[in-house]
C-alpha cells in the first residue's frame, strides 16, 4: 500500500506521471480548497464587523480620537 501508488523507485522516470498522494482526489481537493478560501472571506468579514462595532462603541467623548489625529 502506498498513498501515491509507488512502492519502489525501480522505474524508468520517463514512464512516471504524477507522484503526489491520493491521486484521483483532485476534484475533492479543489472543492476543499475553494471552501477554505470562501470560508476565509466569511470569517474575515465577521471578525472585521466585530472589530468595527467595537471601535464604534469606544471613545464616546472623542478625547482619544483627537489624540490619535494629533499623533498623525
Amino acid at each position: 500500500m502506498s498513498t501515491n501508488g509507488m512502492t519502489s523507485w525501480a522505474v524508468d522516470l520517463k514512464d512516471v506521471g504524477a507522484i503526489y498522494p491520493f491521486q484521483g482526489s483532485e476534484v475533492l481537493l479543489v472543492i476543499l480548497g475553494l471552501a477554505f478560501w470562501i470560508g476565509w472571506h466569511i470569517l474575515q468579514m465577521r471578525n472585521e464587523a466585530a472589530e468595527i462595532s467595537s471601535e464604534l462603541n469606544s471613545d464616546p467623548r472623542g478625547e482619544d480620537t483627537k489624540k490619535a489625529i494629533d499623533r498623525y
Binding site: W9, A10, V11, D12, L13, K14, D15, V16, I19
Partner: peptide, 22 residues
Amino acid sequence: PAAIAGQITGETWTATNIYLAP
C-alpha cells in the same frame, strides 16, 4: 540515474531531494 546508482532505470535526468529521490 547512473550517478544516483540506485534502482531508477532509464536515462532520464532529474532533480532530487536530499535522499536522491526524484
